[in-house]
Simulated scan of single mutants.
Amino acid sequence: MHQMIASPFLDQHVLVRPGSRGGALLPAARHEELRDVDPDAPAPAWLADAFLKQWEDLADVIDQPVGKLLLVRQPSTWEYGKASWEINLGCNYACKHCYLGLKMNAGMPWEDKRRCLDIMAEAGVLFLQITGGEPTIDKDFMRAYRYAWDLGMMITVSTNGSLLWRENLLRLFRECPPYRVTVSMYGATKASYDELTQREGAWDQFVQGMGAARRARLPLRMSVVVADDNASEEQAMVDLCRSWGVETEVFTNITPTIYGGAEVLTAQSKEHLRERQPFAGCNAGRTFFHMDPNGLVSICKIGRDDQISLPQEGIEGLARMAGIGDRLMLRTGGCTGCALSGACTVCRPLAKQYQEAKAPLAAYCQHGRPKTG
């Protein structure tokens, strides 16, 4: 079982370690050298030095054959470095603000899931986010996670944390360390947490899961979600995360559902709306893609028009993604000819969702904001 991964990543080559945020750049020639190293030979001296410079705790295993220390990813003719995967839309919560809308249990059979992971690896994906719904309730989560890990992916699991106390999950994460475990936080008290998630006892599960995750020293990051039900607890949520020694990111702007539904916008705390920074473009569809539970690939979680079926089309279907992304980013519909589009704070796919939800213009567009001066 590998301790390190040497892999192409976009136009570079990197040395990374599962469970660690650190890493190092590799010259292309060094990566080429590693591809030809005898797996039963000791690690080259330069590689051992690079290991120990970045991770001193490997001193006791550095003398193992290089094949036991290192997984070497092969070059890809594709240009993808990251992907996200909704393994299932099902969830054990029913959060009022969830952008997925109706969270139905659905998904591919295991053989299709495995094939899609193989295709992702072939496409060059090094960093994979597994999300949901709640991914840990999926019947194939554990073997999908392990399979992706064995392929040499650095995995982030996005979860509500309610099941992180389970020993089978903790054992999996010990054996195959995740790059990151991102936990959504929905309140600082039982009353607000259970109200927003619409599940009695959800807070108790969250606390139990977080206690187990911290004891297991998982690489945690908290996504603090501020909504109307917990708006008075924003600082309390941040303070609790800090007391746990966990980094946080606060989210206050709720978006419509992926179907353009407005029902979740009622959960928004209007007093906590924050002005977004101008949208400066992204590489959605070019170096990144998203896959839903049925293997339908889109440029991202928001822009889901013109999906391709990865199980049916295979890796060749990804050739269309860049063109789809360019088309979806064009200012069309109500945004055609906008004089302020150069400073717009949302991408076109997100603006379309707000428009379909008939959301107040101020929620996503500069034209709806009071004029100053």
Rank of each mutant, 00 (worst) to 15 (best):
Q12D: 02
S20T: 00
D36F: 10
A41G: 05
P42N: 03
A48I: 00
L52H: 02
L58F: 08
I62C: 04
I62R: 12
D63R: 07
D63L: 02
L71I: 00
V72I: 10
S76M: 06
W78S: 00
L89K: 13
L89E: 14
Y93M: 08
A94N: 11
Y99G: 01
P109W: 07
E111D: 13
E122L: 08
P135W: 04
M142D: 06
R143D: 15
R146L: 09
E167P: 05
R174C: 06
E175R: 12
P177K: 07
Y179V: 00
Y179F: 14
Y193E: 04
L196S: 12
T197K: 12
Q205I: 01
Q208D: 13
G209F: 03
R214S: 03
L218E: 06
L218C: 08
D228N: 11
M237N: 05
I254M: 08
P256E: 02
V264M: 05
L265F: 06
Q268H: 09
L273R: 01
L273G: 00
E275P: 10
Q277C: 06
P278A: 05
A284L: 01
R286E: 15
M291P: 12
D292M: 02
K301T: 15
I302K: 04
D305Y: 12
E316D: 15
L318N: 00
R320T: 08
A322K: 14
C335Y: 04
A339V: 15
A343C: 10
V346R: 07
P349F: 03
E356Q: 15
A357Q: 05
Q366G: 15
H367E: 14
